[in-house]
C-alpha cells in the first residue's frame, strides 16, 4: 500500500486533532537553516517523502542540531542520501522535543472487525514490548479511558524521571482523533503515530505514517 509523506501524514492526522509541534517543510539547506532559526534550536531535520516509510533505519533523521552550521550540513547530507527510488523528497524541520517516554498509537482496518484503534507502549521498541491495546471504532470516551487503563505498563503513565504523569484525557483524545480519521477517511488503510512522545506529560506526535489505498 502506498504511504503519505511524514508531512502529509501529519497534516491529515492533525486535522482530526492529533497534537503536533510546529514543523516546517523546506526544499534546500538554506531554507532549513532559516526554518530552524524561526522554530528555535535545537531542531530535528528529516528527509521527507511519500516513499520514505522507515527513515530511522535508513539514517534519514538528524536529531539535536544546535546551530545553523549543523543544520546546513545535515540538510545537505540528507538530500544527497536520497536515492532515485525515493521520488520527490523535501526536508522537514522540527523543534527537538524531549521526553523520557515513548508511546505508539495507530488505527487500521481489521478484516474481521473493521476499523480499530491501537494504543501501546514503546516507540521503536513497540513490537518487542508488545504492550498494546485495541478497540473497535467507533469508540467513546469511556472506551478510550479503559484502553489506557488496559496497558500493562501503568507505571510509565505515572510521574516518571522528573516528568509529570501522562495527561490521560489528552492521551484519550489522540486515540479518539485516530478513530475519527479511520472512520471518516475512506481511503485510509492504516495510520500510525510512532513515537507518540510524552513531553511534560502531554502526548505529541513526533512521527506519523498514513497508508492509503492505491
Amino acid at each position: 500500500m502506498p504511504t503519505l509523506s511524514e508531512a502529509d501524514s501529519k497534516a491529515l492526522l492533525s486535522g482530526y486533532g492529533v497534537p503536533l509541534l510546529r514543523e516546517l517543510t523546506v526544499a534546500t539547506p538554506a531554507e532549513a537553516v532559516r526554518a530552524a532559526g524561526e522554530l528555535g534550536y535545537p531542531v530535528v531535520v528529516k528527509l521527507c517523502g511519500a516513499g520514505l516509510a522507515h527513515k530511522t533505519e535508513r539514517g534519514l533523521v538528524r536529531l539535536g542540531l544546535t546551530g545553523p552550521a549543523a543544520v546546513e550540513a545535515a540538510a545537505t547530507e540528507l538530500l544527497a542520501a536520497a536515492g532515485p527510488d525515493d521520488g520527490e523528497v523535501g526536508l522537514l524541520v522540527a523543534p527537538m522535543a524531549r521526553g523520557a517516554r515513548e508511546l505508539i498509537a495507530g488505527a487500521h482496518r481489521d478484516p474481521q472487525f473493521g476499523p480499530c484503534v491501537m494504543l501501546g507502549v514503546g516507540g521503536v521498541t513497540a513490537e518487542a514490548v508488545a504492550d498494546v491495546v485495541f478497540r473497535l471504532v467507533p469508540l467513546d470516551a469511556v472506551d478510550a479511558a479503559e484502553m489506557i487503563d488496559g496497558l500493562a505498563t501503568q507505571a510509565l503513565l505515572d510521574p516518571f524521571r522528573g516528568e509529570p504523569a501522562v495527561d490521560r484525557d489528552a492521551l484519550a483524545a489522540v486515540v479518539l482523533a485516530l478513530a475519527a480519521a479511520v472512520e471518516r477517511e475512506p481511503g485510509l488503510v492504516s495510520a500510525e503515530v510512532n513515537p507518540l512522545l510524552v513531553v511534560d506529560g502531554r502526548p505529541i506526535a513526533v512521527d506519523a505514517l498514513v497508508e492509503v489505498t492505491p
Binding site: M1, H108, Q112, C116, L136, E146, A191, E211
Partner: peptide, 22 residues
C-alpha cells in the same frame, strides 16, 4: 503484513481481546 508497527501488532487475538473488553 503491513508497512507499520500497527499492522504487525494487530494480531487476530489482540484485536479479539480488545473487542471482548469493549
Amino acid at each position: 503484513a503491513a508497512a507499520s508497527h500497527t499492522g504487525a501488532l494487530a494480531t487476530d487475538d489482540r484485536v479479539f481481546d480488545g473487542m471482548c473488553a469493549q
